[in-house]
């Protein structure tokens, strides 16, 4: 239940100004993020990067 305390939106509005200037992904980018073939390739790449990091950090 919402309390009767009045809302103080100044901090949210300040952050909205910053976030509102960030780039938005295009429809093409959003589709690529869900494309199974593209993402399968990215999955392999992500795993390879993590394995490389793991190997670099072990002594």
């Amino acid at each position: 239940m919402t309390s009767p305390t009045p809302r103080d939106d100044a901090p949210l509005i300040a952050a909205d100004r910053v976030v509102g200037a960030a780039p938005l992904p295009t429809e093409k980018t959003l589709k690529a993020r869900r494309n199974l073939v593209i993402q399968a390739g990215r999955f392999v790449l992500l795993n390879a990067r993590i394995m490389k990091m793991v190997l670099k950090g072990h002594h």
Partner: peptide
């Protein structure tokens, strides 16, 4: 080379 940010299904599978 090793510091990346990526959004998509691949990260979810990971």
């Amino acid at each position: 080379k090793d510091t990346i940010g990526e959004i998509g299904l691949a990260g979810h599978w990971l």
